[in-house]
Design a protein around this nucleic acid. Structure first.
Length: 209
DNA sequence: ATCCCGAGGG
DNA sequence: CCCTCTGGAT
């Protein structure tokens, strides 16, 4: 993506969503990590509905590490993929207790080595939790990046991350990430995107109606 | 039927 | 690369 188009996109996003931010409720980095792990294939809204009860039942990392798998599953059942998520949450908490004094590590390598924590979750924890420049590519970011031409249609998420990061200056990654999300979630939706109001329609690769 | 702030395994 | 895991909203 060239500089002029990138600037157009970022200026538009800044106009639409000057206050774009993480919408997963959390009070500390550990709660953020748990919330992001829960957010796979579901909406932030659903995650925010279950995290208060979850953190009330398991206030400390050690509580989650020692949780009964069945009870943990019940606690998170209403969001999808609950068996994997419960297993990963418990194993992740156990590793924090065993190897990190119960603290969430702040390096990419350590984060990504945790059970159930992949590239995307790592990027969110780094950027939102530790304010380290990182650009997480989720379903929204991937779709927006491809529609606007930052990446090609059959690029992998790794390709998308690399290309967007190359187009946008590092100091803007964290903010831009959330603006991509907001634009994808509330405007350029997967179904029924608001094309007729969109100022970027001329540069869109999909050009729906 | 498609999508939602994915990760791990094959 | 592909598939599976999952339930709820639209």
């Amino acid at each position: 993506m060239n500089k002029e188009k990138t600037k157009r996109v970022l200026d538009y996003f800044e106009e639409l969503y000057p206050d774009a931010h993480c919408e997963l409720n959390h009070r500390n980095v550990f709660e953020l990590l748990v919330a992001v792990m829960l957010s796979a294939q579901t909406t932030d809204k659903k995650v925010n509905q279950i995290t208060p009860g979850l953190f009330e039942k398991y206030p400390k990392v050690s509580d989650l590490a020692n949780a009964s798998l069945e009870e943990l599953q019940d606690q998170i059942k209403v969001i999808g993929l609950y068996r994997n998520k419960a297993k990963n949450l418990k194993a992740m908490a156990q590793e924090l207790v065993e190897n990190y004094q119960g603290e969430v590590p702040c390096t990419r390598k350590e984060l990504e080595s945790l059970p159930g924590v992949g590239r995307k979750t790592t990027n969110v924890v780094l950027s939102v939790g530790f304010n380290v420049p990182a650009f997480a590519v989720d379903t929204h970011v991937e779709r927006i990046s491809k529609r606007l031409g930052f990446a090609k249609k059959d690029d992998t998420v790794q390709d998308v991350e690399r290309k967007v990061c190359r187009s946008i200056e590092r100091s803007r990654w964290n903010k831009a990430h959330h603006q991509f999300i907001f634009f994808g979630r509330y405007f350029c939706k997967a179904q029924n995107p608001n094309c007729k109001e969109c100022h970027l329609y001329d540069m869109c690769k999909e050009k729906r109606k």
